[in-house]
């Protein structure tokens, strides 16, 4: 059995991970607190969060590097920690930080890894996939940060994995390298690979993820498709007021459907759940008043705004959580 009845390749139910303490929870740090999500076959799933949100702690359990302190985890239908031998040949892993001997060359590193990997693709092909062919004979210590990330990706892809775990795959990459990695990850997904990636680049999650979960202080603060997660957030309209005009000269903001506004000098920023209505009313007003709204910009909420809002809300409620836990 490789998947559950929903076709999920990765299942995480009520996962907890605890560091330190006396083994009974006292003095311990709970890095992952009852996290639940699942990833379907051929899906790209992103775990988003600030540093310390619990992304890596979660992924390490899925990779089988550590047992969960609580809850249940299945990868391809198996317990990744207890059934390593069954899971490992079918997954590819890219850790947050390299882990290659610095004195080996790129080709030697790949050859070592290929010797430990079932059905490894030819090393030349793996190098070609990540664009490192010309660096094959260079020692790892001489690679740039971005090249090391790409070497790591090549190792993760070596065994043609069914499930790929990428922990911050593009950290340290330049724009071109980042787009190259995105293209590769998409191609992998289209070829049927299931991808779980963590990132703190919101743009990356927006670009790549079919579904995502935002982690905050070890909990899932929001999850769904990028559209679902951003859909709960208001859109934004910004522009500059013409000389001689003030905010009070606009029609009443409530009538425009504006829920919130900010001004900075002549710049105005409005938030609205009904961007079409607000923009229409605003433009009709400008037309009537025969003024030009410079730097006009209408945009739906980005993942970044959703993320910041969620982090802010969670921080506001965070103290309650902690109080409850100490009490319990």
């Amino acid at each position: 059995m490789n998947t559950n009845e929903h076709g999920d390749v990765i299942e995480v139910t009520d996962l907890r991970r605890v560091y330190g303490g006396d083994g009974r929870g006292r003095g311990a740090f709970e890095a992952v607190r009852h996290v639940t999500f699942s990833v379907g076959r051929g899906e790209i799933f992103a775990l988003l969060g600030t540093n310390g949100a619990g992304k890596t702690s979660t992924v390490e359990v899925l990779e089988g590097l550590a047992p969960p302190a609580g809850g249940r985890v299945r990868v391809l239908g198996h317990d990744p920690y207890r059934e390593r031998a069954a899971v490992r040949p079918r997954i590819g892993v890219m850790l947050q930080e390299g882990g290659f001997p610095s004195e080996l060359t790129v080709a030697e590193t790949l050859r070592m890894w290929a010797g430990c990997t079932s059905g490894a693709r030819p090393t030349a092909q793996a190098l070609d996939l990540v664009g490192l062919t010309r660096r094959a004979d260079v020692r790892v210590k001489q690679l740039s940060g971005g090249e090391k990330r790409r070497l790591d990706l090549a190792l993760a892809l070596l065994g043609r994995p069914e499930v790929l775990f990428l922990d911050e795959p593009t950290t340290g990459l330049d724009t071109e390298g980042r787009h190259g990695t995105w293209e590769l990850v998409r191609a992998l997904r289209d070829g049927g690979t299931t991808v779980l990636l963590t990132t703190h680049y919101l743009e990356e999650a927006e670009e790549l993820a079919d579904r995502l979960a935002i982690l905050h202080e070890g909990r899932v603060a929001a999850s769904g498709t990028p559209a679902e997660v951003t859909g709960t957030q208001p859109s934004r309209i910004s522009f500059e007021l013409p000389d001689g005009y003030h905010l009070g000269d606009l029609p009443p903001l409530a009538r425009l459907g504006v829920s919130d506004h900010e001004t900075a000098g002549r710049a105005v920023r409005l938030r609205t759940d009904t961007p079409q209505r607000t923009a229409t009313e605003l433009l009709l007003w400008a037309d009537r008043a025969q003024v030009e709204l410079r730097r006009l910009d209408v945009r739906s909420a980005s993942l970044e705004e959703a993320f910041l809002r969620i982090a802010r809300d969670a921080a506001a409620h965070g103290t309650d959580h902690r109080d409850k836990e100490t009490a319990a």
């Binding site: 079918r90 070592m112 010797g115 059905g119 070829g191 049927g192």
Partner: peptide, 28 residues
């Protein structure tokens, strides 16, 4: 690149402990 080159494929043969040891020892 074509998807056939990057897609997953079930490993036809599993590595053996001896092969893995050899690869690790050679690198070392």
């Amino acid at each position: 690149m074509s998807t056939t080159t990057v897609g997953p494929g079930r490993a036809p043969v599993r590595t053996t402990a001896a092969a893995r040891l050899r690869a690790l020892a050679r690198a070392e």
